[in-house]
Design a protein around this nucleic acid. Structure first.
Lengths: 113, 113
DNA sequence: CTCTTATATACTCTAAGAAGCATATGCGTG
DNA sequence: CACGCATATGCTTCTTAGAGTATATAAGAG
């Protein structure tokens, strides 16, 4: 489970991360919110912690988990070169839709005449 | 291998995708550039194709593969909510580095006097 | 039509990861 | 100090993915 990519390949882990975006959470809170068994939560949190996605602090008998930024940046960095590419496609799609609109508009014009 | 996240969890597949950013490639080109056995390349391309990351066209006895945008967008969409969070950290880092620079600058100033 | 090049597929083997359950550890309270 | 809640860890089992190797398909060249 070296890489950040393998870590976020698991749906339950992505769910945990998405939950932690709002605020830090105890294990029990995660367990209840996601409806998954406690050992599963702890195991996934361990993986997330070892990969640097989260850190925890002790609060009495609870542990509070919160996000850490680094691995997200790694993923984002890998994604960056593709962004240029896919936004070009958005542009192409928009141009296409614009042409569609134009065509529609022209048809409407013709109908109006 | 349903999800885009599982697909990009595999390092060889990420390498293939990164290679295709520049231009479309034949299987043989990928094989040589990445130094991996041909069946491996074909298998990974199959996974990528089925997940919508790439598409291929026939060119004589070659197949040319190129990127498709949708799955990248999915990944980016999942990442988006975290971006706000981690850029806050970037800001903090930048402020930190700014202070460092300032300190360095002050030292330089002192040296100059 | 045969030989060669390009690519895909089938099959076997191995390993790793996730689920499920049981149990350990550790702190808090009466 | 005994009990109960919160969390972590250990163990077993099941499944799946990837590597490696061999082979199939299909197109071009002579």
């Amino acid at each position: 489970m070296e890489s950040a990519f393998e870590v976020i390949a698991e749906p339950n882990r992505r769910a945990i991360l998405s939950l932690l975006v709002y605020s830090e959470r105890s294990v029990g809170e995660i367990e209840r919110k996601l409806g998954m068994p406690q050992p599963a939560v702890s195991k996934h949190l361990r993986v997330l912690r070892e990969a640097g996605f989260v850190e925890s602090t002790v609060d009495g008998q609870r542990r509070l988990y919160r996000l850490k930024p680094e691995p997200f940046r790694q993923v984002d960095a890998w994604l960056a070169p593709f962004r240029r590419f896919w936004s070009a496609h958005v542009d192409a799609l928009e141009r296409h839709l614009d042409r569609m609109d134009q065509t529609t508009a022209e048809k409407a014009m013709r109908r109006k005449r």
